[in-house]
Amino acid sequence: MNFPRVLPALAVVAASLVACSSAEPAAPGREQLAGQASAKPTAPAKPKPKPYTIAFGGDVHFEGILRPRLNNPRTALGPIAGVLRKADLAMINLETAITTGGTPAPGKQFTFRAPASAFTALKSAGVDVVSMANNHGMDYMDSGLEDSLAAIKKSRFPVVGIGADEAQAYKPYRRTVNGNRVSIIGATQVLDDEFIQAWTATPDKGGLASAKNETRLIKAVRQARKNSDTVIVHLHWGTEMQKCPNQAQLSLAPKLVKAGADVVVGGHAHILLGAGYLDNAYISYGLGNFVFYNSNPATTGRTGVLTLTINGRKVLKDTWTPATIQGGVPVPMTGTARTGAIADWKALRSCAGLSAER
């Protein structure tokens, strides 16, 4: 064998093997392939919630001088609609049965009903959800309830506080606004004694969500708290013409806050009551009349829109847009009258035990 010739040839072969091993990586083993197969693409980051606004008006019905306004639903609520439409969400208390028939509740002095076009009018005015949990929601008893539920289903208009059974009556309205998961529950603390049993929803009977059943209402709040960023409870509560919250209100509000409510609002008294902060939550004890046939300019005719700016559980700001009821509908105030009305509204919290700031 000629070693001088063989050695250079072996060197060439070795060099080519080294070059191949560096240019082509070794095939992956089973463990490496399994790891690659189980890897998942990274999910995009969830957008950070941004503040949103929700506007609240008081009690609404369409009786008396208001009924003809439903002939043109687009303008039924008058100029206040502009304030409602500006908010991301808007809500009122619909204090009437939605029916054109039925039998009036026996012995009641005042019974309210309205055709289903009321929902069209509210939607046109920028209202997104209403509560029918109040002392007029079943003014036309069981047949009126059936008509109301049928109208709600047909119109697909969001309504809380009423249902074919207890679960439906306490079920919250849910909507995501600017990344915030908002839940709104409706219930009434005001029911005529003789109608409490007949009007209250149970597991096997339709009716209203009752705040008199505190245990059931608190359960609904706690359930909503589990998967919501903002929990709002809309209540029918208070004593007619009493400008300070009654003991039932003062007792229930902190219980709802403890259960997880971030906002508790409502009305019934026909006049405005105080609003402000209770710990980290926001409470409004009385929004007064809103679209209502009976009004005294100095008392029951004073109304307005409460607009809250909220981010998650924090109510960042409250804004009061004062109005006076003229011809049954709220007309926003201007100039010095507006300034004075805002000051008067802020003064109402002095007897409510609420704070101007968190």
Score class of each variant (00 low, 15 high):
residue 16 S to F: 10
residue 20 C to D: 14
residue 25 P to V: 11
residue 25 P to A: 14
residue 25 P to C: 12
residue 28 P to V: 10
residue 39 A to R: 14
residue 42 T to V: 15
residue 48 K to S: 15
residue 51 P to Y: 10
residue 52 Y to I: 10
residue 53 T to Y: 09
residue 54 I to C: 07
residue 55 A to T: 08
residue 55 A to L: 10
residue 60 V to Q: 03
residue 63 E to I: 08
residue 71 N to A: 15
residue 78 G to W: 01
residue 78 G to P: 01
residue 79 P to G: 05
residue 81 A to G: 12
residue 89 L to R: 15
residue 93 N to T: 11
residue 101 G to W: 09
residue 113 R to P: 02
residue 114 A to G: 04
residue 115 P to E: 06
residue 116 A to P: 07
residue 117 S to P: 06
residue 126 G to T: 09
residue 127 V to L: 06
residue 127 V to R: 00
residue 136 H to A: 10
residue 138 M to G: 03
residue 146 E to Y: 05
residue 149 L to P: 07
residue 167 A to S: 14
residue 168 Q to R: 13
residue 171 K to N: 11
residue 179 G to K: 09
residue 185 I to K: 00
residue 186 G to A: 02
residue 186 G to T: 04
residue 187 A to L: 00
residue 192 D to I: 05
residue 192 D to S: 13
residue 193 D to M: 07
residue 195 F to P: 02
residue 196 I to G: 04
residue 196 I to C: 02
residue 200 T to E: 07
residue 202 T to G: 12
residue 203 P to N: 09
residue 205 K to V: 01
residue 208 L to I: 10
residue 209 A to N: 06
residue 211 A to L: 08
residue 212 K to S: 04
residue 212 K to P: 00
residue 229 D to T: 00
residue 233 V to Y: 01
residue 237 W to A: 08
residue 240 E to F: 08
residue 248 A to R: 15
residue 250 L to W: 06
residue 253 A to D: 08
residue 256 L to M: 15
residue 257 V to I: 15
residue 258 K to E: 15
residue 262 D to Q: 07
residue 266 G to S: 11
residue 271 I to P: 01
residue 271 I to K: 09
residue 276 G to M: 09
residue 277 Y to L: 04
residue 280 N to P: 05
residue 280 N to H: 15
residue 281 A to C: 08
residue 284 S to I: 03
residue 286 G to H: 01
residue 308 L to P: 03
residue 308 L to H: 01
residue 308 L to S: 10
residue 310 I to C: 09
residue 313 R to S: 13
residue 317 K to A: 11
residue 321 T to H: 01
residue 322 P to C: 05
residue 331 V to K: 00
residue 333 M to R: 07
residue 336 T to D: 08
residue 337 A to W: 02
residue 337 A to R: 12
residue 339 T to D: 11
residue 340 G to H: 01
residue 355 S to Y: 10
residue 355 S to L: 14
residue 357 E to G: 13
residue 358 R to L: 13
